[in-house]
Simulated assay, not measured.
Amino acid sequence: MYYISAPPGASNAFTRHMTLIERYLFRQILGPILAAVAALAAVALLSQGLRGLDLIVERGQSAWILIKVTALALPQLMTMILPIGVFVGALLSLNRLHTEQEIVVCFAGGMSRWRVISPAVRIAVFAALIALAVNIWVQPLASRTMREQLYSARTDLAATLVKEGEFVQASKGLTVYTQSIDQNGLLKNLFISVAGEDGQTVYTAQEGRITKNEGKPVLLMRYGSSQEFAKNGVLNFLSFDEYAFDLSPYMKNDVYLRYKTSDRWLHELFFPNLQDQWEQRDQLKLLAEGHARLSAPLYNITFMALALAAVVGGGFSRVGYGRRIAGAAGIAAVTRIVGFGILAACEDSAWLNILQYLVPAVTAWFAFRALFRQRVNRYVPVASDQGALMPSAS
């Protein structure tokens, strides 16, 4: 090998040159990853929105409530979306860079394998940190808000007891009909029938509104009348300008707000309230969810390592890397499925939680091992006496 002395500052210039190349690779890889994540998020939001259509069809909620509930479900889906987006985007960008021989030029220019893949690894680490932050703080906050919104929709008396142009039969012999409901929630031309042990009472009113009186839900009716038919055949008739009909006896008392495991904060998962019967019974389930929150971000690094091993880990090929990419995709799918299986098994045995970390970590180790085991032939840039960079001969 020929060694040619370099003038002062040549080494720094070469380092700056390499930094520019790494920035270029970073941008080229980041763009497709962001596009893939955005596309997967759009599909997930569409699927979640279709599942939530019952809020409008059955619960009579507005489209804004549907949009809000759908958006609040996205942080929980990010655990699956982000690693897949990283894998797909990295494969697309790396395959293009390798096919167009840009990565080959980087190796020929003297860049080490680590410096070539370091931009992709940085992106994977950033994705893992973002996923970790979402799992610890954003997901429980969004899930709690969504659960409260769904609870409010299920217990919304205006939606469950009143439907425009329909006779709605509730529990305890209550039947409600309204001809129309305006945008402000004002009910027009009301008809209410209450069947009890002492007889039947019928209320009619020109308008009404569901509100609260002393903390209790009431139907405030105006300009109407009531007819009470007793069992002894007596008819009592009463007209009124305003009458408050108590709705609290007809509320579903069995519906109450309970946060699921996905709604809990991290400290609530690892340190549950053992005084609560439900948390004491599902202590292992809460523990498994807590470890899943911490281990799931590792799949971003694992899937990036598999993408790098599939494209950069082998020699250059003009016919493409379809077989290696298909193999990496299969390994990624099996790894994630095994991870889900281990999560389910951890609900019965606490010691299995260690496998939630080992599965992505071991897969990433094998991927990086295969990546660095492949040797590359390259020229090592050195500088001549005049400062020009020249390849060495060996």
Rank of each mutant, 00 (worst) to 15 (best):
L174C: 11
T175L: 05
Y177Q: 02
Y177H: 10
T178W: 02
S180K: 09
D182E: 00
G185C: 01
L186K: 06
L187C: 10
I192F: 10
S193Y: 03
E197P: 08
G199K: 01
G199V: 02
T201H: 04
V202S: 06
V202N: 11
V202M: 12
Y203S: 07
Q206I: 00
Q206L: 04
E207S: 10
E207A: 02
R209T: 06
I210E: 04
K212R: 11
N213R: 15
E214I: 06
L220G: 03
L220D: 15
R222D: 06
G224K: 08
G224A: 07
G224F: 05
Q227G: 05
Q227S: 13
E228M: 02
F229G: 01
A230V: 00
N232Q: 14
G233S: 13
L235I: 13
N236P: 00
N236H: 13
F237I: 10
F237S: 12
F237W: 15
L238R: 13
S239W: 03
S239N: 14
S239M: 07
F240C: 14
D241K: 10
E242N: 04
F245C: 04
D246W: 00
D246M: 05
Y250E: 07
Y250N: 09
N253K: 15
D254V: 00
Y259H: 09
Y259D: 06
Y259R: 09
T261W: 02
L266H: 03
N273E: 15
D276T: 09
E279A: 14
E279W: 12
E279N: 12
E279R: 09
R281V: 09
R281C: 00
D282G: 01
D282T: 06
D282L: 01
K285F: 07
A288K: 06
A292W: 02
R293G: 03
S295G: 04
A296Q: 08
A296S: 14
L298R: 09
Y299M: 13
Y299I: 11
Y299V: 11
Y299A: 12
I301V: 15
T302R: 03
T302I: 00
A307K: 09
L308H: 10
A309R: 07
A309H: 06
A309T: 01
A310T: 10
G315L: 09
G315S: 15
